[in-house]
Design a binder for these strands. Sequence first.
DNA 1: CCCGGAACCTGAAGGC
DNA 2: TGCCTTCAGGTTCCGG
Length: 282
Amino acid sequence: MPELPEVETIKRFLLPKLVGKKIKAIKILSPKNFIGNSKELIGKAIQGLERRAKILIINIEGGKALTVHLKLTGQLVYANKVKEGKMIFSHPLPFISDGELPGKTTRVVIGFIDDSALFFNDMRKFGWMKIVDQSALAELKMGVEPFSQEFTPIKLKQTLSLTKRPVKVALMDQEKIAGVGNIYANEALFEAKINPVRPANSLNNEEIEELYLMLLKVLKEGIKYGGSSDESYIKPDGSSGKYQEHFRVYQRQGEKCFRCQGKIKRIALGGRGTFYCPSCQK
DNA sequence: CCCGGAACCTGAAGGC
DNA sequence: TGCCTTCAGGTTCCGG
């Protein structure tokens, strides 16, 4: 579920909490979701956090990194001073039954020497934690980061000109552009007034420019509001992101377009829910 | 190489 | 109440 803005939100929240913290124990409740030998991280301190596409990278002293992909339903929840290994929430959280951690969907718990802990929950078990060498991180096959200097309208044009697949499918190709998922692809195309089924190589320069600006705009807004919590995603303190309150097309099928009063339509594109206004997205 | 579709999992929601 | 179908924001693999 989490896309670039959600993972970025998690990174920014966890960075000041985790840097310098020493790992005391790692409890793996679902072995298929943890790749690597957890013992080699015990006693080591966290050096820093980075995000690459939708992957959170936790750099550990000694040259290793713990990478995390949350896929559709992953959550990272951080708790100070966990009492007897448990954390209780006063409010209901998605997929956290009884408001208690570790819960039914908790797959990994990382405990620190100050008795704080990081819980990795994932209802559908698609996500993973993986130990890799820091030196191998450069080899991740990921496209250009939207907020990097390298990403320009010209770069976007070059990327989209390579394929006649629907422009929305092309935007979501992680090997071309890193971090854009279903929500933000739908929202950016709406803002740019471009129909998501258009062949990627059919956009003119004006449309490319607009799509470029709107893609950055919706990603920035996503980060500003702490991500989209309409499904399982939550921030590491258990609170919800608010970007779902600002969706303009996503999951609004049958409702009125905010721009032209047309009716928002839902279709499947590349097997994913696609939302757009047929009357003002050309 | 490019592309579409199935598979990986589990739970929620809606129809009957 | 309960059974069945459909759907879910991601990625990877397999076959055409």
